[in-house]
């Protein structure tokens, strides 16, 4: 069982986020792994553990700080890491990122067959949730998205997913691209031994040239969307405190109605 997990380096959602030229300013000390990718790593580790053999390869398309995300994957137990990093990739949108990831998976697949690519349900800084599907399209593999439950048997993955009032079961044969929901599992905490091992564990760095990416397919040049503006939202309004003198329920209902929350 050989599984590629995509991990993204994102600004810590608890930290203040800044923008410059419509791009997020990334400060190494404050960045972290996209939390939702931890569910993908967990899902991959569980499948490999159940199979009794295999490899989890964490892949990140990022600047040099992407190593932070890889190290987190190592701490959880990923066996190998690839950082796809190149100035030519800066400014990639969903299409460019998916192209770079697809080329990475293809290169890994050429060395030894990749059974599965697992991603998180979204990146907390982008919230597009389209990269898994774009990646599957690039690879010509089926995509199973937003899995709440994942079962692997006889060369096929069956997932359960929930949307509003519908529960679906979907299945596809390997190889495929799978995105897991944040309810799919509880990501494990890294243990002390893996934390120490991850300090010195080496990852590979691949450039756009290593992956034979066409310059017009990635980076700013390959971007099909343009960010026109990006600025922090003003802080939320003052908290409205209501002292309950028997009318608290009515005040709450009025607040919810006023703010279109019901």
């Amino acid at each position: 069982m050989r599984i590629v997990v995509t991990v993204k380096y994102v600004p810590d959602i608890a930290s203040d986020r800044g923008f410059q030229d419509c791009r997020v300013v990334r400060t190494p000390a404050e960045g972290t792994i996209n939390e939702l990718d931890e569910n993908a790593i967990e899902a991959a580790l569980q499948l490999v553990e159940a199979a009794g053999e295999g490899e989890v390869v964490a892949v990140s398309v990022a600047g040099p700080d992407g190593a932070v995300a890889l190290r987190k994957a190592f701490q959880m137990g990923a066996h190998r890491g690839v950082l796809v990093s190149d100035d030519a990739l800066a400014g990639s949108d969903y299409f460019g990122t998916a192209a770079a990831l697809a080329a990475t998976v293809e290169r890994l697949n050429a060395d030894a067959p990749v059974d599965l690519v697992i991603t998180g349900m979204a990146a907390l800084d982008g919230l597009g949730s389209v990269v898994p599907t774009l990646l599957a399209a690039h690879l010509g593999w089926p995509a199973l998205n937003l899995a709440k439950k994942v079962a692997l048997a006889d060369g096929a993955v069956t997932i359960t997913r929930e949307a509003d009032d519908v529960t679906e079961e979907l299945s596809a044969r390997l190889p495929l691209v799978l995105s897991v929901a944040d309810t799919a599992n509880k990501p494990r905490l890294p243990n002390f031994k893996l934390i120490m091992a991850a300090r010195t564990k080496e990852y590979e760095t691949w450039s756009a040239a290593d992956l034979a990416l066409k310059p017009d397919a990635v980076g700013q040049a390959g971007a099909r969307t343009e960010t026109l503006s990006a600025a922090p939202r003003p802080p939320r309004d003052e908290v409205e405190l209501v002292t309950d003198k028997g009318e608290g329920g009515k005040a709450l209902a009025a607040f919810l109605i006023r703010n279109d929350l019901v």
Binding site: Q75, L189, P190, N191, F192, I195, M196, R199
Partner: peptide
């Protein structure tokens, strides 16, 4: 960094 990570792991636990 590894000292902070060890602490953060236990804190999360």
């Amino acid at each position: 960094p590894h000292e902070r990570e060890t602490r953060d792991t236990v804190r999360a636990f």
